[in-house]
Amino acid sequence: MSDIAGTRPALRWVVHASVVLLVVLWVFPTLGLLISSFRTGDQIASSGWWRALFPSEQNLTLRAAAPETQVLQDGLYVIEGNIFDGERASDISRWGVNSRAIDAFAPGEKAELRRGGTITVQANGDYRMENTEEFSGKRGPRVFVTTTLPPEFTFENYAHVLFNANSSDSMGKAFFNTLTVTIPATIIPILVAAFAAYALAWMDFPGRALLIAAVVGLLVVPLQLALIPLLKLHLNIGIGKGYLGVWMAHTGFGMPLAIYLLRNYMAGLPRDLIENARVDGATEFQIFTKLILPLSFPALASFAIFQFLWTWNDLLVAKVFLIDASGQTTVMTNRIVELLGTRGGNWEILATAAFVSIAVPLAVFFAMQKYLVRGLLAGSVK
Rank of each mutant, 00 (worst) to 15 (best):
L273D: 03
Q122P: 12
I237K: 07
G242R: 14
T329S: 07
P29Q: 09
G75E: 04
V97R: 10
G217H: 01
V97W: 02
P150Y: 05
N264S: 14
N166A: 13
G254R: 02
E80R: 08
D272A: 10
I239Q: 03
E57M: 14
Q286P: 12
R51E: 15
T120M: 03
V373G: 08
N346W: 05
I305R: 04
W310F: 06
H250N: 00
T289Y: 13
V24D: 01
A45M: 11
L231I: 01
S296C: 10
V216Y: 05
I188Y: 04
D314F: 08
V216Q: 05
G137T: 05
F308Q: 11
L72E: 12
R63L: 04
A267Q: 01
A318S: 11
L223C: 09
M266V: 04
Y243G: 11
D42C: 12
T7W: 13
H160V: 10
S90D: 06
Y265K: 14
I212Y: 13
G217R: 01
L211G: 11
S168I: 09
A318N: 14
I35N: 00
R208D: 09
N98G: 05
D169F: 11
L350R: 05
T289M: 15
N236P: 06
Y260Q: 06
M1C: 09
L219S: 08
T283W: 00
M248T: 13
L34D: 00
I212F: 14
A185H: 03
P67S: 01
A10N: 09
I292L: 07
F355S: 00
D74L: 10
T251R: 05
L11V: 02
N164V: 04
A174C: 07
G41S: 13
R335A: 15
S167N: 03
V161H: 08
V381E: 06
P150S: 14
Q328F: 03
T148E: 07
A301T: 03
V246M: 01
G207I: 05
G254H: 06
G125K: 04
N313K: 08
D126N: 15
A111G: 10
L291K: 05
Q58Y: 15
E284C: 06
Q70A: 05
L291G: 14
Q43V: 00
T186K: 07
R263I: 03
F153S: 04
P189Y: 04
F253M: 07
N177M: 00
A89H: 03
F365K: 15
T120Q: 15
S36L: 02
A45D: 13
E80G: 04
R94L: 15
S136L: 13
T132S: 12
L291F: 13
N59Y: 12
M255D: 09
N124I: 00
R63W: 01
R374Q: 10
L72R: 12
A89T: 02
P55I: 08
E156I: 02
A10G: 12
Q43G: 10
K241W: 15
R51V: 13
A159G: 08
I79C: 14
A193D: 11
M1K: 12
E156K: 07
P206M: 11
H16L: 12
N164C: 02
G268P: 01
L300E: 14
T333K: 07
P229C: 08
G137N: 01
M332W: 01
K319E: 15
L257P: 12
G6F: 09
S2N: 12
R100G: 15
